[in-house]
Design a binder for these strands. Structure first.
Lengths: 228, 228
DNA sequence: TCATATTCTGACCGTTTGGTCAAGATGTTT
DNA sequence: AAACATCTTGACCAAACGGTCAGAATATGA
């Protein structure tokens, strides 16, 4: 019932060590940034001598690349919930849920991604230009369809997507600020649920999302400049 | 007609150099992070020998502190537009406008702030606990008053504030990602205006903001958990 | 058991970095 | 112009860093 076949011997050693190193590296990169992170610190956190790190990952850049790769994979998997949805309430709602859950369960990954983008995406530029761009354009088409079907107000899909990304990832990237403003206490289950509900409520109400309303015309004139 | 008295001689030299250094430092810190930034790079960008930097700012930490201080000041000044407003449309709308303008005019500052918070706010923890907290609580009271007056739906002011921060700052912090998804072209005036309008439109509609409606009762039951 | 492949690790190295310093250059005051 | 304060800068240093390497330890397969 395990998710992967239990390996033994050398193969198991390699898998365990690589996993440990990647986990430690993600935390250290998230807390100190790429420049501030040191191989020694990652090694200590993984419980391995530094030279052993370089046995599995030849350079700091290679290790960082793998960390970012993993994050992007998780990101894409979570984005799948968008696909099989009949309208914005279901689709965008589920997407917000998924991204909020990720911000809670995987804050370090979100931070590494944010720092990478902020520094000009030296490592993941190709991802942005290919995979992410295709994904975004695909979802934009779906949203435009929903708008045409009268299921939500006319809104440029890109700005809407940025808003969802920004709002959900904020709870990971700025988690420290939020905790401080919360009196130093991390969010409990109720607060996470309230945050999630508030985000969904405001965005879905903000775009006038309805479960289905094919024969309705937009409630307001399309003030928003459509995508050119 | 200048904003400050023209100094001459040594005083002028000091002021000009400090300003140049701070400007260069903000850019380098934003692009490379604290750990990735080097005094040599900042010196080159400021057009000064490295030793001269240490004459004006004794350590890298001291220089970084000053950069973050400046950012926080600008942040606070922009936040003032919130204060003299009669309702959410005016207050939150103007605040969003101000923060969007800051994201466009001062993206490096936003990035430095974001990185600082992401890394656990080692330098500005006291700001978060004092000034920022007081400001946030003050604004939360205003928002609760608006809710009580029926000018907007019941929403936890903190979650709402996080949403405004996240959405507006996203255009600075993730500017590179947005530019890439925009085909490599930076936003032009129209796109900035459209982004601003979309953000305001969704948030204000999302919280059911009206210019004034003192004798109306909330349109929906308060699903949102109020601040405890 | 022995030979082979893989994993582990302390010691080491060249480079880069933040920071220092002494001496010179430039402006200011009397 | 002389005495003083401030500013400038190339040269330098100790520490920290990413990365290397030879050889020990451990597992695998015949």
């Amino acid at each position: 019932m395990g998710k992967s076949v239990k390996l033994s011997g050398k193969a198991a050693i390699r898998e365990v060590n690589e996993r440990n190193i990647l986990r430690a590296a993600e935390l250290v990169f998230a807390e100190a940034g790429f420049g501030g992170a040191t191989m020694q610190l990652i090694a200590d956190m993984a419980g391995l001598p530094k030279a052993n790190l370089h046995y599995y990952f030849p350079t700091k850049e290679a290790l960082y690349r793998r960390v970012v790769d993993n994050i992007f994979q998780i990101w894409l998997e979570a984005a799948a919930v968008f696909d099989d949805a009949d309208g914005p309430v279901e689709g965008i709602g589920a997407y917000i849920d998924a991204k909020m859950d990720l911000s809670r369960s995987h804050p370090a990954g979100s931070k590494v991604w944010a720092a990478e983008v902020m520094h000009g995406a030296p490592v993941i530029q190709d991802y942005l230009e290919t995979t992410l761009r295709e994904w975004t354009e695909g979802r934009a088409k779906v949203i435009r369809r929903w708008i045409a079907d009268g299921k939500m107000k006319p809104v440029d899909p890109n700005y809407l997507m940025y808003m969802v990304w920004a709002t959900t990832q904020h709870y990971a990237d700025f988690g420290h600020q939020i905790v401080t403003l919360n009196g130093g206490e991390p969010f409990d289950d109720e607060q996470w649920e309230a945050a999630k509900t508030t985000v969904k409520s405001i965005i879905l109400a903000g775009i006038g999302a309805t479960t289905a309303n094919p024969n309705a015309k937009p409630a307001m004139e399309p003030k928003i400049t459509p995508l050119r």
